[in-house]
Design a protein around this nucleic acid. Structure first.
Lengths: 340, 340
DNA sequence: CTGAAAGCGCTTACAG
DNA sequence: CTGAAAGCGCTTACAG
């Protein structure tokens, strides 16, 4: 569509004022008389004038825009984080531009190239599964674009990171199973090459060790991507073990839900004969019966924190900025699947 | 953070070329020698130069950015639509900026104000529940900002709309229940002031009428927001009816899932004694047992279609553009909850 | 309280 | 194939 728009200069001519006066009146600048401001506002409304924010951004060298790179938007966890980011950014006057890497390293690199174009003043990132080097982010860093990583964060790279305490959360979840009397506690874990899933496994082990339980490898299964289907697969094996495990700590809610269903099909009572705990507080955890005990990872709060940290650094005057690691406090939501 | 960046002019000086030559070389313009292009690219890389796309956008009066307004990002349907929008936009070279109205009319209006700033070349919108007038969108329209609505679209306003055929989808879902032998088919519907839920109810009625079934008001319940909790509430009433309904068509999957659970608790067999059909193909529909028959509303495709239509209109040279209404084809996914 | 002027970093029509 | 120059629509330091 072709567009011809009224500019600030048009307004100035119309009112026989200087462009600078218009600009300041629009900004509600203190050094402009109220009458002038009113006149300007009225005329602007009348002519349907709105400031060209591209020109303004260009001149001020500020776009008030942040970029967000997530593996996929339609994963509930990420949509919650983005919701938090948008909420904070909106109130701070920033726009949020989103990109999906779709877990492709190549696409992630492409996106960081686009983000070098100075449109975004900072970027919030959750790394894709393929990402094993961070050179593309280091480059943005060198260009003085502030970065904040969340959830899947780079290891061995100094950077702003928003994380949850996976180790401690898993520790508490496992200890909860111990406290309600479980003796043989199984773990269905995520891919151990991903830091957060490794930490959850470590937390599981630490809780067992603290309470003098052996680490029994026959009770431990690692999935590739914590899918519902994989969870079912491993739960089938667990349910047939003799003796059967009487507690299962799963690294996410999908595998926990499939475990519930598999045990139920074999008529094993939950939570009486086996207690099950998940991780992430997905909507399904409150729907599945029995309702699933799970770790609330507070994704929305992660988003808020990420946006707050990023925008703080964008607006920071100093050149040198400390990187920060913020740990979001999780909570164990005890529901029917582990209520004895 | 303070930033000083290398500009195109710096590059030009460094190479003793004109800025115009650099600009064209960077664009891979045909009228520039290969040697010059290579020199420019090499030097740009060396100095870490990237074009200031704000300046470029400003000069060209194109931002290659589209805005998206959704009630909430963390609703799975919307996150899927956004995913489709991002996918199409990304491939077309556009950025996607997202806003949440949080179903607040006031916030929706604020957002349309922001979008008047010419940052976004077009906007994709799903209306909030409170929205009953469209003046704020008409205003954007008058400013020649192309708009595309999806799902909750304005009634009585000529506009681009991406919708599914709710009437027909509901008709087919209900007819499916009739075909498998249901005689008393209930409906748990959405708020009838929302067009799509009204259309689903109409589709339900039309299917009954076609097959000479009476419309029995005691079998029909309308929820306020199709929540899981409300679904359970009404399912409790249905399960106690004498005679009991032997089929339930629900306007979304949450209410359908709660209906499954309520009937199961009363030991009513699904699908033998009652068949249940939902709407939307939420992830939970494939997890709940029995798996839920539902209408796949193809949200991702809606997003693709919305982005395609919008970007098409942005790039259209002509001033006058026809508004389009695109209907996305749904499909009934028949699963265990209605497989007899 | 208001104005004149410079300039942000590009792009492009024009010229050669 | 390359360059000089104008200009996109604002903002802001300077001046009065």
């Amino acid at each position: 569509m072709k567009k011809k728009r009224i500019t600030l200069v048009d307004l100035a001519k119309e009112l026989e004022l200087a462009a600078s006066t218009i600009s300041r009146a629009l900004d509600n600048h203190p050094g402009i008389s109220i009458e002038t401001k009113e006149k300007v506002l009225k005329k602007a409304e009348e002519l349907g004038f709105t400031r060209n924010s591209i020109a303004s951004s260009f001149k001020k060298n500020k776009t008030l825009t942040i970029g967000v790179i997530v593996p996929r938007i339609d994963i509930h966890f990420h949509s919650l984080v983005i919701s938090g980011i948008e909420e904070f950014a909106y109130k701070a006057g920033y726009n949020v531009t989103i990109f999906q890497s779709r877990d492709s390293l190549e696409r992630e690199k492409e996106i960081t190239k686009i983000l070098q174009n100075k449109m975004s003043e900072g970027v919030i990132i959750c790394l894709g599964t393929e990402t094993n080097s961070y050179e593309h982010f280091e480059k943005l860093n060198r260009m003085k674009v502030p970065l904040v990583f969340y959830d899947r964060v780079p290891t061995g790279m100094e950077a702003n990171k928003i994380v949850i305490n996976d180790f401690e959360s898993a520790f508490k979840a496992t200890e909860h199973l111990i406290e309600i009397g479980c003796k043989r506690i199984s773990h269905i874990g995520g891919n151990q090459s991903t830091g957060i899933f490794k930490a959850r496994f470590e937390g599981y082990k630490a809780a067992l060790t603290k309470h003098d339980f052996p680490i029994d490898e026959s009770l431990i299964y690692f999935t590739k991507d914590l899918s519902y289907e994989e969870g079912a697969l491993f739960a089938e094996k667990l349910v047939d073990l003799v003796p059967r495990p009487d507690g299962v700590f799963c690294s996410n809610d999908y595998t926990a839900v499939s475990a519930i269903q598999v045990f139920q099909k074999k008529l094993v009572k939950i939570p009486e004969e086996v207690a099950i705990v998940g991780f992430s507080n997905y909507p399904i955890s409150k729907i599945i019966e029995p309702h699933l005990t799970t770790v609330n990872d507070r994704a929305f709060e992660m988003g808020l924190a990420a946006a707050k940290l990023l925008i703080g650094q964008i607006e920071e005057e100093e050149e040198i900025i400390q990187t920060e690691i913020i740990t979001i406090k999780t909570e164990l939501l005890i529901r029917e699947s582990s209520s004895r």
